[in-house]
Computed example of a mutant assay.
Amino acid sequence: MSPAVGHGNPPSRSASSSTIVAETATGYHLLKINGYSLTKATTPTGSFLPSSPFTVGGHRWSIKYYPNGDDVETADYISFFLVLEEEETNMGLTVQAKFNFRI
């Protein structure tokens, strides 16, 4: 019989680890509104002015600016919407975004 069998030696231990990393990207787009009062006076409620398209994370985005809100209930406010300018990827992945508007 082998000396390791049946003589109180501790069993051997093994260890392993793994990591799951979600791919993320960061970036920003600076949108300047020159002539805010004019955009407010000439753009009807529910109509928007689009930003130039920009790319972050390999995806094409734009911002819709509604100077008089996007509907009658928000006519006293300005509204901004971040828009993904492409269909979802053909690999079945969903694009998610966190964003922050600062004025």
Rank of each mutant, 00 (worst) to 15 (best):
K32A: 11
Y66G: 02
S51M: 03
N68K: 09
N90V: 10
Y36L: 04
E23A: 15
S12E: 08
F99Y: 09
T89A: 09
L93E: 00
W61M: 07
P10K: 14
N34E: 08
G46I: 11
G69A: 05
V5Y: 11
Y28K: 01
T43G: 00
D76Y: 12
K98P: 00
L84Y: 15
T42P: 12
V5P: 15
T89D: 08
E87Y: 01
M1K: 10
N100S: 11
V5C: 13
R60N: 06
F81P: 14
T55D: 07
L84A: 10
G35W: 03
N90Y: 06
P53C: 12
G46T: 08
Y65V: 11
L38K: 13
S18V: 03
D71A: 14
I78Q: 12
L30D: 04
G58F: 01
A97Q: 03
G27C: 00
Y36N: 05
G27I: 01
A4H: 13
G69N: 04
S37F: 14
G35E: 03
T94W: 08
E85L: 01
E85M: 02
L82W: 02
D76H: 15
T26F: 01
D70I: 01
Y28M: 00
T26G: 02
N68E: 10
A4Q: 10
L93Y: 01
L82E: 05
G8W: 15
T24S: 00
G35Y: 04
P3A: 06
G69E: 05
H59W: 13
P11G: 13
K32C: 08
L31H: 14
M1H: 06
K32P: 05
Y28S: 01
A97F: 01
E88W: 09
I33P: 00
G6Q: 07
T26E: 02
K40W: 06
N9H: 11
S2D: 14
N9Q: 10
A97P: 04
A22R: 10
N68T: 14
N68M: 07
F54I: 02
E88A: 05
Q96C: 11
T74M: 05
S37L: 14
T39Q: 06
S17G: 04
V83S: 10
L49F: 06
K98D: 02
G27R: 02
F80L: 03
H59R: 07
N100A: 13
L30E: 04
T89R: 06
T42A: 10
Y28C: 02
N68S: 15
L30F: 01
T74S: 05
V83P: 14
N68L: 13
T74V: 07
T39N: 11
E85R: 00
F99H: 01
